[in-house]
Design a binder for these strands. Structure first.
Length: 351
DNA sequence: AATGCGGGGAG
DNA sequence: CTCCCAGCATT
């Protein structure tokens, strides 16, 4: 049951949000919102998928490009897979892009192009988990759902001075967040907590002095805000090594592989090469006059560091190995490549 | 409950 | 360097 403290907190947050809400491309302006205009579910969904484990700054341009190229969910559903993967290239977590397309096609084929408006129905769609289902239901459909993301976890841990480390504390944090979720304007409230976490209640050196919740915050009283939430220690990242091979034909075409859908960089284009192991092992995809490119590629993935040596060769214009894609000189866009592969191309350009 | 999965910005 | 980000799918 909501007590008066809860009401005070959610009211203070909404009031703060009305004055300080960030102007984000997937939001409707305050004037429209006051007139009862809801944001487009397609825009909300697209932004929420992009924002999974990704900062607003990184998402902004991608969101505009996707919307310009595919203005509706029908347009996106009809897009060729490789176009969508290419447009997603550089944003990371490529399973999101594969699930984005799957989801768009389900929405078009099974829901007549309209996103379902309940948490449970949204949760069944590809790429939509508990957080995103709650966010879309609250923001686009005005449902009183409680969103739980990294921001909300941090704000709740501090507001209630919870010292139990994540992820064990998740149920308690969720309970606290649910108790604060108001019946009115749940979508604005959800975005208010996340805005607060992104701009005031930040991971390091939070701006407690200007926080709208400073009176209620128990961690501020204890002086523990900057140390919360506590997290269980994480494993160190090993370093792996490998080789990549940049083959260019005399006609300017490049030889690339499409990586399998499962696993690292799944579904993306990349240079053929060796496995990535503890020790480097050369593995040219075919016989050629390979020359080493100066320098090396250094890149860090979620769970390991990678050091790549790159090799280049020039081949006859009619050369075409069976298992590689030939990408013509004028179709080849480095921006279609994931970042590590883009870095390897950078070595070739800089040679 | 643990693990795999990108990339960039802040400190 | 380390940490974190509007997490999800899989095992």
């Amino acid at each position: 049951m909501r007590d008066s403290i809860d009401l005070e907190v959610s009211h203070a947050l909404l009031e703060w949000y009305d004055r300080h809400a960030r102007d984000l491309p997937w939001r409707v302006g305050p004037v429209e919102r006051a007139a009862g205009v809801r944001p487009d579910p397609y825009h909300v969904w697209l932004s929420e998928i992009m924002l999974q484990q990704t900062t607003v700054a990184a998402v902004r341009d991608y969101f505009h490009r996707f919307l310009a190229r595919w203005p509706t969910v029908e347009a996106l559903a009809a897009a060729p897979d490789q176009q969508v993967m290419g447009e997603w290239a550089g944003l990371g977590y490529y399973a999101r892009a594969r699930n984005l397309l799957k989801c768009a096609r389900v929405v078009v084929e099974e829901f007549n192009g309209r996103f379902p408006g309940t948490h449970d129905a949204l949760l069944k769609l590809p790429g939509i988990g508990p957080y995103t289902a709650a966010a879309i239901a609250a923001i686009a459909f005005d449902r009183p759902e409680t969103v739980m993301d990294g921001n909300v976890e941090r704000v709740m841990a501090r507001l209630f001075d919870i010292h139990e480390p994540l992820p064990g504390s998740k149920p308690v944090l969720k309970e606290r967040a649910a108790a604060l979720t108001p019946a009115v304007r749940p979508g604005d409230y959800a975005q208010a907590v996340m805005d607060l976490g992104a701009t005031i209640c930040t991971p390091k050196s939070p701006a407690c002095g200007i926080c709208p919740l400073r009176e209620a915050c128990r961690a501020r009283v204890s002086g523990t805000a900057a140390d919360l939430p506590k997290k269980s220690p994480k494993k160190p990242k090993p370093t792996r090594f490998g080789h990549v091979y940049l083959a260019r034909r005399a006609d300017g075409a490049w030889l690339l592989e499409r990586r399998p859908d499962k696993g690292l960089l799944g579904g993306m284009l990349g240079w053929p090469g060796s496995e990535w192991n503890d020790s480097p092992c050369e593995a040219p995809p075919f016989e050629a006059d390979w020359r080493p490119l100066p320098g090396e590629v250094r890149h860090t993935f979620t769970h390991f560091h990678l050091i790549l040596k790159a090799h280049a060769a020039t081949l006859p214009a009619d050369f075409q190995p069976a298992d590689l894609h030939v990408v013509g000189k004028h179709e080849f866009r480095p921006s279609d490549l994931p970042t590590v592969m883009r870095k390897a191309y950078g070595l070739w350009r800089g040679q």
